[in-house]
Design a protein around this nucleic acid. Structure first.
Lengths: 343, 343
DNA sequence: GATTAGCACTCGGGAATGATGAGTGCTAAA
DNA sequence: TTTAGCACTCATCATTCCCGAGTGCTAATC
């Protein structure tokens, strides 16, 4: 791909992409020569631009309106042209301050992180909370509520809690509950939640269980408690995106907001980012999602040690300040990783 | 107030309010005579409308544009003119289906309730989750995590859970934790959370405590666990409100979305609704909130027995289908009450 | 006295018009 | 290969004009 383009076309393409990112207006040949010192005449630039259009890097909204980068152009720009900046001191400062623990619980930190991503980028910030499954099992407790209702509380190593209301067939004694909890805590010590699930299944098939109805019940309860709830997604600063001129049109805006109200829609995409470690970029059509037309997604995974926990990032128009946003996302991910490390 | 107006003015005001609710366009004298059979000429209607403007019920956007109801008119309409409809069978059906428990936890139910309110009304649905303080204490547990970190888990009668990560000065033994939990569970049995807070303070001052550092610590921990987190607010169907013509303007819309991103802003208003039992209506300026200009809020409290738990409702433009929305809000509140009753 | 017809007046919104300017593609000269 | 020149396109913006819905006032009518 790189060699289809001469050095000169590359320069011109870069100029157009950057100008368009800055102004959101179609770029004409004269504008290019005026704003960048290429020592070329507009006519020459016109010829080059015509070639670039032929190759699919540029498109014209109408005959006399200059040209606009395509998704392909942004992709080329991000892959080959972009010089990633550093995160400015003050921005580092702000991220660190706003994403700190400071007595907040995990949910609050992640919500605030999504907002921070949004204010710094001026687009939408997005954070997917760690899947519970990635955690280490710590302890399970049963609390008797009124009647036959039971609350199972599952605590993981890092202090996240999952609880589940269980309706039992018959009333259970406190002593029974203690026995069940002891049994499970012993059985599941030190495993990841994913392993816990397997161990429960194994144990259910074992002989020992066949003769002890109580333990069998304990296993069923713990299994029920572990039913995976949908991953939590925090989307921050939706209002910020309204500043962008591409959403001035109400219809477009309505679409966007509908899309993000159903967080599930975009979760599949984010799951894909979760699999690939590090920074991930989807530009417009690359996401293969109709709601993402004209939008780009920049994500980075956050992790403790070598365990990927979750993913966070920024969603904005394809005309996005990649050079600025990519390092911000990256820096934030690393910071969140460090915070959860200490946890 | 009622007697300032003759029967005829009342009819005309009602006609104007209803037409305006239906069309969102300023209503002129001819329109009134055309759409409602009052057997009056436009000229007469004009005179009446002029009087109504004088009295502050109507306003004209500009000289030749018909008239628009003021907040005062809506208030009068709601108080004196409105005939509250019943909730349609299918709507009852939908509310019941979507707000059912069906294995969901409380948060999910309330979130779905806010969405349901939104789809049925075409405005924004809003639900404030029960304050933890209103619950009955059931049990407190301490779970040791790594190092000096401790997780306190507080369970209420109805199965809601509040947990808090606590950093201790020195490492505690499991036996100590059990003793602490036993002490607290015994001490706080049967109290409401609000009472629990008081009891902890009392106990801290008692003599017994002075000679038992462990119990003193237990009290401190429980106190920390009880620090009230902000009430959870679910706002559903923000996108639905974009259908309304009054938000066609992007600037207005941006304002709204910003206002509701900071849920805290509106929480004060909702708290006021919480105090008054039953249905509450704030029309435009009545809320004394700049963000609520041009918006109305209809709420109803939900409760178990005689305990008010929380509040739910609908936010939309002042030009709102009160006759339809009020019963929907009311019905939903009753339904949610019933659901939580069984809980 | 209340109601209505008539009339002059206001004003926003939409259609028509035209100027402006940014931009293009093509051709021929440098 | 590059560039100057030129004819052409088209969105945008301001201007103008007209239309219609609406108003307030006055005088005639019930």
């Amino acid at each position: 791909m790189r060699d289809q383009l001469t050095e000169r076309s590359r320069q011109i393409l870069e100029a157009i992409v950057e100008d368009y990112i800055a102004t959101a207006e179609p770029i004409g040949s004269r504008t290019v020569t005026r704003r960048h010192d290429l020592s070329l005449s507009p006519a020459t630039v016109r010829n080059v631009m015509s070639d670039l259009e032929e190759l699919g890097f540029l498109a014209s909204p109408h005959t006399s309106a200059g040209r606009v980068p395509t998704d392909k152009a942004y992709r080329f720009y991000v892959d080959s042209l972009l010089e990633v900046r550093n995160v400015a001191r003050e921005e580092q400062e702000e991220i660190r301050k706003r994403c700190s623990l400071a007595g907040k619980d995990l949910g609050e930190v992640l919500r605030e992180t999504s907002r921070t991503l949004s204010t710094l980028s001026h687009y939408m910030g997005i954070v997917v909370a760690p899947r519970f499954t990635a955690n280490l099992f710590r302890q399970i407790e049963f609390v008797k509520l009124g009647g036959r209702r039971l609350l199972a509380i599952l605590v993981s190593q890092n202090g996240t809690v999952q609880n589940k209301l269980i309706e039992t067939d018959e009333e259970l004694h406190a002593a029974d509950l203690t026995r069940m909890a002891n049994y499970l805590n012993h059985l599941l010590q030190g495993l990841t939640i994913a392993q816990v699930k397997e161990r429960i299944l194994e144990e259910m098939r074992s002989d020992k269980i066949k003769y002890d109805a109580l333990l069998a019940q304990a296993l069923r309860f713990s299994q029920e408690t572990l039913i995976d709830t949908e991953a939590e997604v925090f989307i921050g600063g939706q209002a910020n995106i309204l500043e962008q001129p591409e959403f001035a049109d109400v219809g477009r805006m309505k679409e966007i907001f509908r899309a993000f109200e159903e967080k599930g829609q975009i979760l599949g995409l984010l799951d894909r980012c979760l699999e690939a470690q590090g920074v991930n970029i989807y530009i417009g059509s690359e996401a293969h999602l109709s709601q993402m037309m004209g939008m780009s997604l920049i994500t980075a995974t956050y992790m403790t040690g070598k365990n990927t926990l979750g993913v966070l990032g920024v969603i904005g128009p394809t005309r996005m300040g990649y050079a600025k946003v990519i390092p911000i996302v990256n820096y934030t991910a690393q910071l969140v990783s460090r915070i959860l490390e200490v946890e």
